[in-house]
Design a protein around this nucleic acid. Structure first.
Length: 254
DNA sequence: ATGCCTCAGCTCCTGAGA
């Protein structure tokens, strides 16, 4: 079974690329982030024609997430129960025996800002909710744009980005707390190419110079971990003419 | 560096992203 996550930075702009990518990568489940469109504009028909059913949680201008799946998805939940949020950031569903959570974590802008405080509160809310989710659903995948690097391996310039947004100890603490709950960073279960990133700044030839961050992750629960066969970042779509700034991450489970 | 791209929208500039 194959899972993937991709921050598309506007589904309206990226739909042809998503369909192309699915044609070459017929994953079972694809989580999308930053749709930047409302539910009424979601291209259900285009995905149905490609063999995917979709559940979406859209929002005007910013945010917006969706789950696409080849088989039926049930028990769809939007956002984090118990955490009040006016932004569309999380969508969960049961697909087969697996509970799948697709998430667009807050950016946080800069340490000390109001948006950073919101990010910290959101991360606490996520973890409180996940505690019970993991009990109810031992086979769980949490994937999406986390907007946090695990450590310096995930950062092209660790000195320059020291304690900068996505790289602060406060943010990384919350990522480690998810690991402490029994989740694993599936990417690091395998040997990976040096300087592997999932996001590159549009500016300054970020991709060409490989000045990036690994901030898109797929975490798996303890029950799934022994079944993980591979995890990789697909840089191919970043070479398209009008790419998203993020690349998709792919996970294979037996 | 108040910059660099890209996207949406109260669209010919601004806010936000990361």
């Amino acid at each position: 079974m194959q899972f993937a996550t991709w921050n598309v930075n506007s589904l309206s702009v990226r739909l042809p690329q998503v369909l192309d990518w699915l044609a070459s990568n017929p994953v079972d489940v694809l989580a999308l982030q930053e749709l930047k469109l409302t539910d009424d504009k979601f291209p259900f028909d285009a995905f149905a024609a490609a063999g995917y059913q979709a559940h979406c949680f859209g929002q005007k201008t910013y945010n917006g997430v969706a789950l696409l799946s080849r088989s039926e998805a049930s028990d769809v939940v939007r956002n984090i129960p118990g955490f009040d949020d006016d932004m569309a950031r999380v969508i969960s569903a049961s697909i087969g025996k697996t509970r799948v959570i697709g998430a667009y974590f807050p950016n946080g802008q800069a340490p000390g800002s109001e948006k950073f405080e919101y990010k910290m509160e959101w991360l606490k809310g996520l973890r409180n909710w996940l505690k019970t989710e993991l009990v109810q659903h031992p086979e769980l995948v949490l994937m999406g744009d986390f907007n946090i690097t695990f450590d310096d391996l995930d950062v092209w310039d660790p000195q320059g980005m020291y304690e900068q947004i996505h790289c602060t100890e406060a943010e990384r603490y919350h990522l480690r707390a998810l690991i402490a709950m029994g989740l694993s960073d599936s990417f690091r279960l395998f040997e990976q190419p040096a300087k592997s990133y999932s996001w590159w700044d549009y500016r300054d030839f970020g991709f060409r110079r490989n000045r990036g961050l690994r901030i898109d992750h797929i975490l798996v629960s303890a029950a799934l971990r022994p079944r993980v066969q591979s995890c990789l970042i697909d840089k191919t779509p970043r070479k398209n003419e009008r790419p998203s700034d993020h690349a998709p991450v792919l996970l294979s489970i037996s």
